[in-house]
Design a binder for these strands. Structure first.
Length: 372
DNA sequence: GGCACCGGGCTCTGCCATAGGT
DNA sequence: ACCTATGGCAGAGCCCGGTGCC
């Protein structure tokens, strides 16, 4: 195993000591409250402390009221810790406002957890940015050992350090899942692979995770029903479905199944009205699975705008990725191109599918040629 | 240069329900 | 009775540029 791994194990071997809270700064409940008449008084000095720190107490209380009745909390320690890692006071206040239970974590617990994250991230500030974005992902679980197990488990699937980095940065929640839950998802993916006649279940699971960093924070129920739905409705061979799922189709497993069904049916309806066949629908989904991500309303306006701009259904079927860009973007481009007399029939629609920079460059070249 | 193909970046958090522990 | 930890849900795409071939 790597030395990084050994470090992690060392951190966790001092667990028994570390679990003993070493709160240096803490709040205590006021003695004025008589426990007999008021068995669970709020900790008033805590409330004052938090208020002084800029925490939105009303929001925090609404979220996790239990925290405010604790006799001992560690808000000062947590704030000091986070500020030591480069978080601003504003960020700290925002974190506690959104996930008050953070103030129940001990300094040692935080040090450990931070170290585990730091073995994946290069800098403290990267981590701070994620905490600012999603405090719950970091603080929800108090089980550092489970976090380490998740990292080890994912590595064992063949995910490299860079992969783990992407995963933790994008979907930090996945690392607060129980190992068991993550294992269930991986088992499910491996099962699906085998059901479809695949020969490398682990490679399949790995491919899907890398293509869809959010898969581990979905329920297995959802993923299972999406796979089943695609299998029963797409009329694909097992091998083709396998390729679709571990390729660009991995992302559509995210959708709620109801939404997936709705989108599939609105796409089909729309394409059939445009004169396309069932086979065309199937081909489009295989070529560009993300089309199923587009809601009925957006899809409708996007297709209409293309048709109105002089693009044919056949052209859209040939280059479904034109649907990748926003309707606003496409509309603006269509207008610009109309202005310079661009002929889609002879020149194709690829131009709609360029990044803004490439589009502008292309347009400039067209104008230069025209002006000669 | 023109084009096709491909993969990656962003961000997807914040809320609710509930089992289980004390 | 209360709290914590954890599972699960709703929400509903867009954009960029590297690379390799011609």
């Amino acid at each position: 195993m790597t030395s990084a791994y050994k470090t992690l194990v060392q951190i966790l071997t001092v667990k028994s000591i570390a679990r003993r809270p070493l709160w240096r700064f803490y709040s205590t409940a006021s003695n004025d409250d008589d426990p007999k008449t008021n068995p669970n008084p709020e900790n008033t000095s805590l409330l004052e402390n938090l208020d002084l720190m800029g925490v939105d107490v009303r929001m925090a209380r609404k979220r996790q009221p239990g925290v405010f009745r604790r006799l001992f909390t560690n808000e000062e320690g947590v704030a000091e810790f986070l500020e030591g890692k480069g978080a601003s006071r504003r960020t700290v206040a925002s974190i506690i406002s959104r996930y008050p239970r953070a103030i129940t974590r001990s300094k040692d617990h935080l040090e450990q957890r931070w170290q585990l994250w730091r073995n994946i991230f290069q800098t403290d500030l990267e981590i701070v940015a994620i905490l600012d974005r999603s405090p719950e992902s970091f603080f929800r679980s108090s089980d550092n050992e489970n976090l380490l197990k998740n990292i080890t488990f994912l590595s064992s699937l063949g995910l490299g350090n860079q992969d783990i980095h992407r995963l933790l940065a994008a979907a930090p929640r996945a690392f607060s899942n129980s190992l068991e839950l993550n294992r269930q998802m991986v088992d499910l993916l491996e099962d699906v692979c085998q059901e479809l006649g695949g020969t490398d279940p682990q490679g399949f699971a790995k491919a899907i995770i890398l293509r869809n960093l959010y898969i581990l924070i979905r329920s297995t129920k959802r993923v299972r029903s999406n796979v089943d739905f695609l299998r029963s409705s797409m009329n694909l061979s097992d091998a083709d479905l396998l390729d679709l799922l571990q390729g660009s189709g991995a992302k559509i497993l995210d959708l709620s199944t109801e939404y997936l069904k709705k989108n599939m049916s609105s796409l089909r309806g729309k394409l059939l009205v445009m004169g396309c066949s069932e086979e065309d629908v199937r081909k489009m989904i295989v070529a560009y699975p993300m089309v199923l991500y587009i809601g009925a309303a957006t899809l409708g306006t996007k297709l209409d705008c293309l048709l109105k701009g002089g693009i044919t259904a056949k052209q859209i079927l040939e280059k479904p990725k034109v649907l990748d860009y926003s309707t606003e973007n496409v509309t603006a481009r269509l207008k610009e191109l109309e202005g310079i007399g661009y002929d889609f029939q002879s020149k194709g629609i690829g131009i709609l599918n360029l990044s803004q920079k490439r589009f502008e460059a292309k347009k400039d070249r067209l104008l230069t040629v025209q002006n000669k």
